[in-house]
Nucleic acid binder design. Structure first.
Lengths: 225, 225
DNA sequence: TCAGTATTTTATTATATAATGGATTAGCGG
DNA sequence: CCGCTAATCCATTATATAATAAAATACTGA
C-alpha cells in the first residue's frame, strides 16, 4: 500500500539507522573508541572494556554488520580494526556533539576529577609550542601496541603499569606532558597524579592520537626505540 | 564492586549512547533530516514522515531528551527545531559515513531511479559556474516554509505540488536546475521528470541547503519575492 | 589425531523499544 | 464555560536487544 517514494525513503533511513543502532549501546561505543587507538584481538578488547568474551564477540559482530569494523583471523586470534578511518572521525563527531549538547558529561567528569589537583589540561597549541622550544618530555602511557599503532612525534612510551619502576627514565628538571587515549581515558590522569607525588612537574594533554591527527598534526608509527 | 574508573567510563559512554539511541531508529532519523530543513510543527512532521501523531510526538520527545531538538509552544501548535546547528552537521556526517560504508544505499538508490533518465546530478561546482555565467534558473521545489527557512541565492520557489500550474514562470530557453532537501529527497527527481516531459531542459542538484551551507556557500533567508 | 585455546554460536532470560488506540492536557475562540 | 484542535501521556501488545552460560567451531602444536 505504501507508495514507491515512501518505500524508498524508508529503505534509505533504515540503512542510516544501521549505523545509529551500532552506536546506540555504551559497550559498543567503548569498543569503537578502543579500536580508534588501533587494532586489537577480541580477548584484549573484552578485557579493556570490562566485558565478557561472548558478549564482546557479539558486540563486535554488530559493529561488523554495520560495516564499521573488520575482522581478520591470524592463527588462533581474530583481530578487529576500524573498517575505515572515517569511522574514527565519525566517533569523534559523536563525542563532540555529546560534549556540546550534554551537560551531564561535564558534570560526570568534574565529579570524577574532584579532589585531584592540577588536572587542567595543556592544550594542543601549548604543547606544540613547548615541544618546539624543547622544554618538555612527551609521555605516552598507553599499552605498547597502541603506541606502535600511532603516537605523537618524539613521545616516550611508558605504559602506566610500568611507570612506577621506570621513573628513572624521566627527567626531574623538565616538564612532562602525558597523554593517553583521549579526554575520557584515565591513564594519563593516573600517571600525572603519580608523577606529581614523586616530585615531577607533569601536565596532562587531553587529546588522544586521533584528535591530534584530526587537526592535521603529525603522527609517528612504529616501535619505541 | 566496580572501580571508580570503570564507573566513570561507563557513565561517559552511557552519555554518548544517548545520542546513539536517538539516531538508532529510522523514523527519528527522518524527523531529524526534516528538521535540518527548518522548524516544523508536530502535525507537519508527522505527515511528512508518514507517521501517526502520537508516534511522532514520542519520537520527538526522544530526540528532545537526547538534546538534539528543542520545542516551543505557540498557541495550539508546538514547533520543533534543531537544538544546535551542529546537530545538522552530525546528521550529515552520519549520512556521509553511511554512504561510504553501506553499498546498500547505492543499490537502493539506483534501483529507485531505474528507468528515469537523466538523473545524473549537477555538481555544486558546475552549478556555481553556471549561475555565475547567468545561464541557469535555480528552482527550489520544497514547501514554502522550507524555502523561507533558507534557500540557495536567487532560487525561484515553486513547491512541487504547484509546479504543474506555474510552468509559465519558467523559461524554455534556459537550463533549469532543481533541488530539494538533499540526495535522498524525491521532490527534485519528480520535478525534473515532469519538466523534461514538458520540453524543459532540467537537471538535478543533489545537494540540499544544509550540504550547500556546509561547504561554506551562501544561503539566503526569507520569503519568495 | 588429540588436547588446548580463542572465538563464535545458540538458547535463555530479562529488559527495552515501537506502534497503536484511547484518555488527557493545553490553549484558542466563541 | 464549552467545543474544538494540537499535542502529549498512558496502557497494551509485539518485537528487538543485552547479558549469560553452555555448546560448537576454528585453529595450533604436540
Amino acid at each position: 500500500m505504501a507508495s514507491p517514494n515512501r518505500r524508498y525513503k524508508t529503505a534509505i533511513y533504515e540503512q542510516f539507522a544501521r549505523i545509529g543502532k551500532a552506536i546506540s549501546n555504551p559497550s559498543r561505543l567503548e569498543l569503537l573508541d578502543l579500536l580508534c587507538q588501533g587494532p586489537r584481538t577480541v580477548e584484549v578488547l573484552a578485557k579493556e572494556a570490562g566485558l565478557g568474551l561472548a558478549n564482546t564477540s557479539q558486540h563486535l559482530k554488530a559493529l561488523r554488520e554495520a560495516r564499521l569494523v573488520q575482522s581478520e583471523r591470524t592463527g588462533l586470534y581474530v583481530t578487529y580494526r576500524l573498517a575505515d578511518k572515517h569511522v574514527c572521525d565519525f566517533f569523534r563527531s559523536l563525542r563532540l556533539l555529546a560534549e556540546t549538547r550534554l551537560a551531564e558529561i561535564r558534570d560526570i567528569t568534574s565529579q570524577f576529577l574532584e579532589g585531584r589537583q592540577g588536572m587542567d589540561a595543556v592544550s594542543r597549541e601549548q604543547l606544540v609550542a613547548k615541544v618546539r622550544g624543547g622544554e618538555v618530555t612527551v609521555l605516552d602511557v598507553r599499552p605498547p601496541e597502541e603506541f606502535e599503532a600511532g603516537h605523537l612525534p618524539k613521545a616516550l612510551s611508558i605504559p602506566l603499569n610500568e611507570l612506577e619502576r621506570r621513573l628513572s627514565e624521566l627527567p626531574h628538571d623538565r616538564e612532562i606532558v602525558a597523554y593517553c587515549r583521549g579526554p575520557y581515558c584515565v591513564l594519563a590522569v593516573e600517571a600525572i597524579e603519580m608523577l606529581r607525588k614523586r616530585g615531577f612537574t607533569a601536565f596532562r594533554l587531553e587529546d588522544g592520537v586521533p584528535d591530534w591527527q584530526a587537526r592535521g598534526l603529525p603522527v609517528a608509527v612504529g616501535e619505541a626505540r
